[in-house]
């Protein structure tokens, strides 16, 4: 979610390869300066490439390498097994269940975040007295970190003293084992995650709604179109770039959900919320099975790379929009 924050503001800007203008500039420069540039380039890019090299490029290769071995108790690769780890993983029912759970979680969080965020934005996008107050409240969850969200909601989901079950009791509804029933546990973590994402999503959608030209609605009013018609035929198409943008951002962010799962369910019950990232952590840093965790890391990286790629494509499109 945070990942995207600033790029919203940058979206008008172009992302082209260097054009003819730069060449002009190059000609203006004298030879001495150009020679200087090389040293500066080393100086300016050196630190970044050092950090990226050590903490991004190398670990990816190393993870790939580890995924082709069995690792011993110390995490050292000892027996080369080729693609065996991948085969084991992709034929493992438990892992497939994990992928499925991740899918449900990611799609659930994304869909509900968008629906709720859009709803809040639509409701807040009117000119009545005191609307500022409501807008402020709608953005409030932006200030809440993972741990705090998890703690607030853990308390609400508590089976015996939690508010949700107390309300249920009060209304003579059956109580729910929010975090111990596999299906409800998924519902619970999705709810919490949606709540966490809400403030940011609201803000983005609200900005987008505000920028839809008023004249479009005026024209529709004149032709007597209902407000529902206006929403689906004017508003939605106008904000569709934002829509996709939020979708991709929320997807990537929920793919990486870790803290929430760790605090709320620890992957349980019966692996129902054992999402891909949590699984990697558990396999490696609890069970000590670094080879399997590396294999899972590669699978995760591939999935996220695909989504990020789509994000780039969408961003490029937005720019041209």
């Amino acid at each position: 979610m945070i990942n995207s924050f600033p790029s919203v503001k940058r979206r008008r800007q172009t992302n082209q390869a260097p054009g003819p203008k730069e060449e002009v500039r190059a000609n203006v420069k004298n030879f001495e300066l150009q020679k200087n540039d090389k040293y500066y380039a080393w100086l300016f890019l050196g630190p970044s490439f050092l950090v990226l090299g050590i903490f991004v490029f190398y670990p990816m290769l190393r993870t790939l390498y580890l995924s082709l071995f069995l690792t011993d108790s110390f995490g050292r690769p000892t027996v080369f097994v080729g693609l065996q780890n991948y085969l084991n993983l992709l034929t493992s029912k438990v892992y497939m269940a994990s992928i499925q759970a991740t899918g449900v979680y990611v799609i659930g969080v994304t869909a509900f975040t968008i629906i709720c965020g859009l709803l809040l934005a639509a409701v807040a996008n009117q000119k009545i007295r005191g609307i500022e107050f409501f807008r402020t409240i709608f953005t409030a969850t932006m200030g809440v970190s993972v741990s705090v969200s998890a703690i607030f909601w853990l308390f609400m989901f508590n089976p015996s003293i939690g508010v949700l079950n107390q309300i249920a009791l009060f209304l003579h509804l059956p109580t729910v084992n929010w975090l111990t029933n596999p299906h409800w546990a998924m519902v619970s973590v999705i709810t919490t995650s949606v709540w966490m994402h809400l403030g940011f999503t609201f803000l983005i959608f609200f900005g987008a709604l505000q920028s839809v030209p008023k004249t479009l609605y005026d024209a529709a009013d004149v032709s007597g179109a209902s407000s529902r018609y206006q929403f689906f035929h004017i508003t939605l198409p106008m904000i569709s770039p934002t829509f996709f943008f939020v979708a991709v951002i929320t997807m990537i962010s929920s793919f990486k959900s870790f803290g929430l799962i760790d605090l709320m369910t620890a992957g349980g019950p019966t692996n129902a919320t054992n999402l891909l990232v949590y699984r990697i952590y558990k396999d490696a840093f609890v069970d000590g099975n670094y080879a399997v965790a590396s294999t899972e890391s590669i699978v995760l990286a591939i999935i996220i790379a695909i989504i990020t790629f789509i994000q780039f494509k969408l961003l490029a499109k937005r720019v041209n929009y």
Binding site: L52, F55, V56, F57, Y58, P59, M60, R62, T63, L66, G75, F255, K256, F258, V277, I280, Y281, A284, Y290, A293, S294, S297, I298, L300, A301, I304, A305, T308, F309
Partner: peptide, 12 residues
């Protein structure tokens, strides 16, 4: 590198 999630690289 934007495509490589940190979460997938924690082991190394």
């Amino acid at each position: 590198t934007m495509m490589l999630p940190f979460e997938a690289e924690v082991i190394p």
